[in-house]
Design a protein around this nucleic acid. Structure first.
Lengths: 202, 202
DNA sequence: AAATTTACCGAACGATGTTAGATTATCTAA
DNA sequence: TTAGATAATCTAACATCGTTCGGTAAATTT
């Protein structure tokens, strides 16, 4: 079949261009205004061409969301490999989580349901792996003489707190700046860990 | 002008019917599938008739969101008037907040940005008043020898935790049931208050 | 060079929010 | 009671959306 390797490469490049265009438009104007025709115009192709590379609009968003989880996972793993104390690791992971969402809000929005362009099927392995890393970290913090259910609860609570503060901050519903919100979050997480540690002793 | 009072009453009733139809459809099928034509069909009028009562689709959603805040506010005030101890009041308000969101998720979704049918201008007095009530309650808990900034922080943190857990639970991103999530939330809030109280002493 | 496959596009379909203009019902005034 | 005015409502249409169909032009293979 000859040297059709270039065709494949060009095809891949166009696919990347579509994803990049969609994300760029979302970052600039919000997901509600991202339209197939605008994406097509951005990459200088006609709208039907997009459908040669993606089944539909949701497939583009799904792919971006999964990439978002991969990015987030990498950021968390980078922190993980620094191998500092469990508490430090936990707090830095929370910070990395925050930084990712704040740096790419358009991705965080589609990873969770902060917009209704949110994909319906969101049971991706990338998401599962992300939570597994978080779970392991919390486990390390809580490792000594802590039974499983309470460990899982701790993950749920810290995750909820982080996500909640992020959601509100991303929507500017918080009357303080993001740096202050991030600092508050860190302190609250420290406080929660303090309580949980003291409970372990008793 | 005679007895045109009936016309006004009928007009109001139709307006209520439009709001009720929109909310009902949202509760049954989700906001993404709520359409002006479906609302019109539900109330047995043609689509343009809706525009005699609302400027556009967003105006309907805005009105429902504001009513949502009024409902929530009433629930909080009911708890407030029971005049129990500050801590009890705080926890029960959090519970009332949770119950409202869980009972009318379609309202909670548009009150915060959990869907992109979210109104752009969301600076309503009802929302401000709701937070004022919450603020006063937190203030009562933290009243003795607590300086203002930390008080406000406490509100932000508890609100974020509640909202975060709600968002995740409403989207079934939590692997536990709502009752369990609610119980976890209550415990976490108690824990946070414990830390804050102990810090006050030192 | 002919045949075949591939990439791409113009035009269109159905559904959406929304508006204009006509039609019908209702009320006021003689 | 009836003529004219006012209000309520509808039919038809527009622009835009996601998406598909069918064809054209280009690239590749034979």
């Amino acid at each position: 079949m000859g040297i059709g390797g270039r065709r494949d490469r060009e095809k891949q490049e166009l696919k990347q261009a579509i994803l990049a265009a969609a994300q760029m438009l979302a970052a600039k104007t919000g997901w509600a205004k991202v339209t197939m025709r605008k994406v097509a115009e951005q990459i200088e192709y006609s709208p039907p061409t997009i459908y040669e590379h993606f089944q539909n609009k949701e497939a583009i968003i799904t792919e971006l969301a999964r990439r978002g989880f991969r990015q987030l996972l990498m950021a968390l793993q980078t922190v993980d490999e620094l191998t500092i104390s469990p508490e430090e690791k936990f707090l830095r992971m929370s910070k990395a989580y925050w930084d990712f969402a704040w740096q790419s809000p358009e991705l965080y929005q589609i990873m969770y349901g902060l917009t209704n362009t949110h994909p319906s099927d969101n049971s991706w392995p990338e998401a599962k792996e992300t939570f597994r890393v978080l779970h392991l970290t919390v486990q390390a913090v809580m490792r000594v003489e802590y039974d499983a259910p309470e460990l899982h609860d701790a993950l749920l609570i810290t995750w909820s707190l982080t996500h909640g503060m992020l959601s509100l901050a991303l929507e500017s519903q918080l009357d303080c700046g993001p740096e202050r919100a991030a600092a508050l979050l860190q302190q609250a997480l420290r406080d929660l860990m303090t309580v949980w540690r003291s409970r372990k002793v008793s």
